[in-house]
């Protein structure tokens, strides 16, 4: 990847992380851990991959994105705000009464292509959008992000079977493999492993990637575009809470908001990182 673009993505991803912390802190609830683990991915998608138009959010030819792991809405909202779909200030009223930004993604929010949050359903919706594109002869692509805990849901495998059966090569699924879910390690709660072999057995093209390395993401998504006749799943190894030292790889940050002190520390760390990047 071009060094200038990569630097720009790193800067944007840090701003996205600041927005996540801002949103969850002001909401006094929400899911910072899994939001931070997909911050780089969403930054890559919205600033280097997807054809989307903040001034025309409903443009029919746009690529579609479904956040199947809907509880990490703060990451999506923060990314959409950076992209210009709505003002960054909206993040401060996340989850408040009368606010635009609901606790989980809602289709009525500019830039949000589907309501989601009940795990396992978003991936089926994305498959439906991909089949619809094939049927209508449209050339948009559909991307959807699942949690590694989410793939414990049987519907994910119904959807995978369906996507492979209908040869949906315009669908890219991404599994955020941060290894943690509410009750602990995914391997302890209900092991989904071996993830790669399972998706291969279901007929998907599987690519492994590093969720926090833009070169690795770029390589994976470019490869996905060359795949014909089958859907792709990118299994990306990530760190839950990535970017905030005390949240990293710590399951207690799955669904907890920081207090004032923790908020200040997270903002300080991210701001320092941002200054470093901006030189």
């Amino acid at each position: 990847m071009d060094a200038t673009l990569k630097k720009q993505l790193e800067i944007t991803a840090t701003k996205v992380r600041l927005g996540i912390i801002e949103g969850v802190y002001n909401a006094k609830s929400g899911h910072p851990g899994g939001s931070l683990s997909i911050a780089d991915l969403l930054t890559y998608l919205y600033f280097a991959k997807l054809n989307v138009y903040p001034d025309k959010p409903d443009e029919a030819s746009r690529d579609r994105f479904v956040l199947s792991k809907g509880h990490t809405a703060p990451a999506l909202y923060s990314t959409l705000a950076q992209k210009g779909f709505f003002p960054e200030d909206e993040l401060k009223s996340l989850r408040h009464i009368g606010a635009l930004l609901q606790g989980h993604p809602c289709i009525h929010i500019p830039g949000v292509d589907m309501s989601s949050g009940s795990l396992g359903q978003g991936v089926s919706v994305a498959a439906g959008m991909a089949l619809s594109a094939k049927y209508q002869g449209a050339d948009y692509k559909v991307y959807t992000v699942l949690g590694d805990g989410e793939i414990q849901e049987g519907q994910v495998w119904e959807a995978s079977m369906f996507a492979a059966h209908y040869k949906l090569d315009n669908l890219v699924m991404i599994v955020d493999n941060n290894g943690l879910q509410i009750d602990g390690k995914v391997s302890d709660v209900m092991s989904p492993y071996p993830i790669v072999d399972k998706f291969k057995a279901f007929g998907l093209h599987v690519i492994e990637a590093d969720a926090h390395d833009f070169d690795s993401l770029d390589k994976a998504f470019n490869e996905a575009e060359t795949v014909c006749g089958q859907p792709t799943v990118i299994v990306m190894k990530s760190t839950k809470g990535k970017g905030v030292s005390f949240m990293e790889d710590n399951v207690s940050w799955h669904g907890t908001a920081p207090n004032a002190e923790q908020y200040a520390q997270a903002v300080e760390e991210l701001t320092a990182h941002l200054k470093e990047l901006e030189g």
Binding site: M114, Q121, S124, M129, L131, S132, A133
Partner: peptide
Amino acid sequence: PDRHFDCGIAESNMMSVAAGMAATGLIP
């Protein structure tokens, strides 16, 4: 035949797939 999609014995997936098709302009 080209407008009929069998989803197999997987009704949960079928309902969400239908949602995706409706969200992109079809009447499933």
